[in-house]
Simulated assay, not measured.
Amino acid sequence: MHTTPLTPELLRGALDLERTAHGLLPHRLPARARAQCADPQLAMVESQPSGVRLVFRTRATTIELDTLPTKRVYVGAPPRPDGVYDLLVDGRPAGRGSVAGGNTLTIDISAGTSERRPGEAGTVRFAGLPDAVKVVEIWLPHNETTELIALRTDAPVEAVTDGDGKVWLHHGSSISHGTDATSPTSTWPALAASLGGVELINLGLGGSALLDPFTARALRDTPADLISLKLGINVVNADLMRLRAFGPAVHGFLDTIRDGHPDTPLLVVSPILCPMHEDTPGPTVPDLDAPGEGRLRFRAGGDPAEKASGKLTLGVVREELSRIVRERSAEDPHLHYLDGRELYGEADFGDLPLPDGLHPDDAAHRRIGERFAALAFTPGGPLGDGAA
């Protein structure tokens, strides 16, 4: 077996690669951004490699990847399945696997505490592949921090430098990150990218799409042909700011991105339907009255009457985002708006309800991805050919 050094040329979708005692840890925020926020929740989600994949050309029939995963365990919730590695050959699904063991991060949401325990590395193996030159992609688990240790193949590997699509840079919440999708290629951004023929960089940061200036600078400094921002739900979840602060924060976020991408097509997407927060402010809290359902559920912790004091609901957020984009687009013809309920609305909730009250399931991810591709990437769409 050939052992190929893991180098940046083999990886796509990460903004930074950290050398660790074990190997290479992909990050979706650069080191400077990480240094500006000590929030352990952000550290966890930005190191989960949603959209990050190894891409190389080879005629190998057997591929082995050694990794050290970090598994999450939530106190009071059933065990989570192992993270999934998706194998694509020439763009088509060709295998799926997992790595057992690894480090363990035990999280007590109610107490706001966590505990980390070290574990052993493991191997995901793909065999019986076609004996022909092909482009191989290994999509890393979207919801499991993954340190890359070694890549072995039974034929030499070379980096693929001839990308065949425009780079789509997307930022959003846990829904964009891929929560409750079953695999890294079944998150809605991965599905939309495949249908749209674009190269995905996914900065969906579960719980941390909070209009942070360091995230805006990361978006500003990342080369991209197309950009989309799915904003609002996490600001409500965290009960982070009032209406007075939200509007200027959105303007500042857009201003920073435009400093690096003055003419890039930029699509602002408001939240999908989430009934518990449509007219009720945050914070979002665990539903401790539903322990018998076998999974974590959430509920709105605010009071609808608090809207009068400036608390944010999804309805208020959509109105503000629509207004901001409408006013800015008079001088920025490359800026566009999409109501998230066009991706998942009332009829969809009746058909495919949110299992935990907040996140779509795998079938809903597919529906959202298909609709986003049709609305955004088709000719004449805000991110399609000929987009203004």
Rank of each mutant, 00 (worst) to 15 (best):
L195F: 08
I149H: 02
G350A: 13
E158I: 12
A249E: 02
H365P: 00
G315V: 11
H177T: 03
L375D: 09
P291D: 10
A363W: 05
G101S: 05
R28P: 01
G247A: 15
R323T: 15
R125S: 15
G128P: 07
R12L: 11
I149V: 14
N143G: 12
L29E: 00
D154E: 05
G95K: 00
G122F: 04
Y344L: 05
D164T: 15
G247Q: 15
I149M: 13
V45N: 06
L151T: 10
R328M: 09
T264C: 11
D287E: 07
A238F: 08
L314H: 11
L88H: 13
R53D: 07
W188L: 12
M241G: 14
P5D: 04
A121M: 09
T187F: 10
V75M: 06
T106E: 10
R34K: 10
P81C: 12
A77Q: 14
G165S: 10
A347R: 15
T58W: 02
T20N: 04
R297H: 12
E342F: 14
G302C: 01
G247Y: 14
E46P: 02
T61Q: 15
Y85E: 01
G196R: 03
A374W: 02
S208T: 14
T222M: 03
I227E: 02
I368N: 05
A21H: 03
L191A: 12
S174K: 02
E320F: 11
L226Y: 02
D287G: 11
S114I: 06
L68A: 06
V268P: 00
P81Y: 13
T222L: 06
A31W: 04
T106G: 05
E115P: 13
A364Y: 02
L343R: 05
D339V: 12
L267W: 09
A111T: 08
R217C: 05
G302E: 01
P130M: 03
G23D: 01
T3H: 10
A132E: 14
L195I: 13
V198N: 06
G23Y: 01
L15D: 00
E342T: 10
